[in-house]
Nucleic acid binder design. Structure first.
Lengths: 143, 143
DNA sequence: GCCAGATAATTAGTTTGACTAACTAAATAT
DNA sequence: ATATTTAGTTAGTCAAACTAATTATCTGGC
C-alpha cells in the first residue's frame, strides 16, 4: 500500500532528491570549474544573457559575490560582460562558445551517470519517474 | 504521451531535484547554523555516533576540515567528542540533546514547506510521488 | 532642467569552510 | 626493537560567502 500522507511524501522526496544529486555530483569535478561558477554558468547557458544582479538573485547570492564569480568565469573565457545599451549602470553577462561547450560536456557526463541507472528500470517505472519529475517541478515553482 | 527515454527522464529528474531542494533550502537559515555543520550534524543524528574520519568520509571532506566543523559544533553545544575506549587514537563524535532538538526543529521547518506544497496535489499525484521517491532512492544507491 | 532618492555594479574587509603539508600519538607489522 | 600505518590536530592558503561603503547612472517630483 503506497503512502499518501503529505508529510511522509515530503520527507521521502526530500531524502531521495538529496541522495540522488549527491550521487551524480562526482561528474562535475572533471570540468575543472568550481560548483558555484558552474551553477551560474548553467543559468547563463539555459536562461540566456542576464544582468549581474538578476544572476545574483537567481543563484541566491549577493551582487558582490556574483561580481567575483563572473570575473572568474570571464578570466577563464567562459563568459563575457557587455555594456547594456539602454542602461549604462547595467552589465549584460553572456556565456561564450567555450562556456557553452563546457556546460554541454559537463551536463552530458552528469546525465550519463543518471541515465545508466534509469535505463535499468522498467518502462513503466521510467514513465512514472517522468511524470514525477514534472510534478516536482510544479512543487518547486509554487508561490 | 509520457516520455520514457532514459536520457530525458534523467535530465528531467536532475532539474526537478535541483529546483526542489533549492526551494526548501531557505528554511535552514533560521537554524543559525551553517549548511556544512548542519549536514554533519544530520549524519550524527540519523546515523549515530561515529569517528571523525568516518564523518569526514560521509561528508566528502578531509579530516582537517571535519576536525574544525566538529570543533565548531562542540563550541555551540550541538555535539561532543569522547575518547574511544578501544582505540586511543580515535574520537567518538556524538550529537547532544540540544543538537538533536535543533535538527528536529530544522527538519520540521524544511518539511513543512514541502508538505504544504505536496498537500495541494491530488491523492493519486501524491501516491505517484511516493512511489517515485522510492525509485529515486534505489537509483541513488546503485553500484 | 535639476536635485533627491533609488538602483547597478564594484571595492574593501571579514568570516567560513575547503584544501595540502607537517606534526604528535597510538596501533600494527616485520 | 624498529618501521610503517592510521587518527587526529595544527598551520597556512585559497575560494566563496557576507556586510558596508563607493561610484555611476537612472528616474520622479518640483
Amino acid at each position: 500500500m503506497p503512502k499518501s500522507d503529505a508529510l511522509e511524501i515530503a520527507a521521502g522526496l526530500h531524502t531521495a532528491a538529496i541522495r540522488l544529486l549527491r550521487a551524480v555530483r562526482v561528474a562535475d569535478d572533471e570540468t575543472g570549474v568550481s560548483a558555484p561558477k558552474l551553477s551560474a554558468l548553467s543559468v547563463l547557458t539555459f536562461g540566456g544573457p542576464t544582468s549581474l544582479s538578476a544572476l545574483a538573485r537567481a543563484e541566491q547570492v549577493t551582487a558582490p559575490t556574483m561580481s567575483k564569480l563572473v570575473a572568474g568565469l570571464e578570466a577563464e573565457g567562459l563568459a563575457v560582460k557587455r555594456a547594456d545599451r539602454a542602461d549604462k549602470r547595467s552589465v549584460r553577462v553572456e556565456v561564450t562558445a567555450r562556456g557553452r561547450a563546457l556546460m554541454e560536456a559537463g551536463r552530458k557526463r552528469r546525465l550519463a551517470l543518471l541515465q545508466a541507472r534509469v535505463a535499468s528500470l522498467s518502462a513503466s517505472e521510467r514513465a512514472l519517474l517522468g511524470q514525477a519529475a514534472a510534478l516536482m517541478l510544479r512543487l518547486a515553482e509554487k508561490q
